[in-house]
Design a protein around this nucleic acid. Structure first.
Lengths: 165, 165
DNA sequence: TATCTAATTTGCAAGTCTTGCTAACAAGAA
DNA sequence: TTCTTGTTAGCAAGACTTGCAAATTAGATA
């Protein structure tokens, strides 16, 4: 049985893959490891960067492919909070997100009170899920900001891990 | 004074623009009209399509530019809920969104209970905003679906208004 | 262990969305 | 009417993601 409410362990995923007729390649195994318990909400590029350091030559295409597979298998979720790239989250627990509008960091958070949320006037919708996103500033960014007059919509906060180009 | 809690009227925006040293062009005036009171959450492309029918030759570049200006001026918000393109919302009232995972429709909703939401374990964050997104199926889509076995993450639901290419 | 077949990985082209850049143009002031 | 400066239109390009096809390889089979 799974130990936590999250993506299965690399070993469990190996079994799951094989039982579905999928092959267990070194690339996939590496990505399983890199995503397992990962709470950084990495982008495909960020994961690719990590993977590349351990397996030079691995393709970005493979990273995208594997992430999509895992998402289809329900092992991870996609997070789109603006900012360009989709982020991946192996945390399958009932949780939500906090975003630092300065550095772009995304943190998982448990939120109390979501069950009491009452949308008004959408009788014609069958609601299946609720997502809550808190926007704010983390303590680290809170310090280093005084003269910098950040205004309006920052479409692209500092990416978590930009691959040098 | 503004009549509703939303983007200013085209006339008010005209004044606001001039008072900021910005010029009032026909393109901007048209876009002000198209966005004013617009609750369709259009993408830049969708707005461009509408604008083009009334002003052939208007540039998509201008649409993006004007939308960004309005966002900087706080006249509208950007909505990123995955699905590729950013959507624009002139509704500045305290509201949230409901998305139909089938057709991609986005509806504004007032939500009761947001003030009671308690994120756990983020003492180091200064929260400024909370966004709630409900995912579900609208009544229209609810009907026409039986054998179609939609699975996993649908990255791109049917776009609201696709410009024929 | 050798063989075989289908799934995978790569690498690149291409598609989508958005922005940078610049010459031509036009709003608003003088 | 003239002038200055902000704008627009177009196109190139950048960022992110996917389609495609050839080369490769995991895992089954003999």
């Amino acid at each position: 049985m799974p130990n936590l409410i999250g993506m299965q362990t690399p070993t469990e995923l190996a079994a799951a893959y094989r039982s579905q007729g999928r092959k267990l390649t070194p690339q996939r195994q590496l990505l399983f490891q890199l995503m397992y318990g990962n709470d950084k909400h990495p982008t495909a590029e960020a994961l690719f960067a990590e993977a590349s350091s351990q397996m030079p030559g691995i393709s970005l295409r493979t990273v995208y492919q594997t992430l999509n597979e895992l998402a289809e298998m329900g092992e991870l979720q996609f997070i789109d909070i603006g900012g360009g790239a989709t982020r991946f989250d192996p945390n399958l627990d009932d949780h939500h997100h906090v975003v630092c509008v300065d550095c772009g960091q995304i943190r998982d958070v448990h939120v109390n009170g979501t069950a009491a949320l009452k949308p008004v006037g959408i009788e014609d919708f069958t609601i299946n899920e609720v997502g809550v996103v808190f926007q704010g500033v983390c303590s680290t960014c809170e310090k280093g900001r005084a003269k910098s007059n950040k205004t309006a919509h920052a479409k692209s906060p500092a990416p978590q891990a930009k691959v040098s180009k």
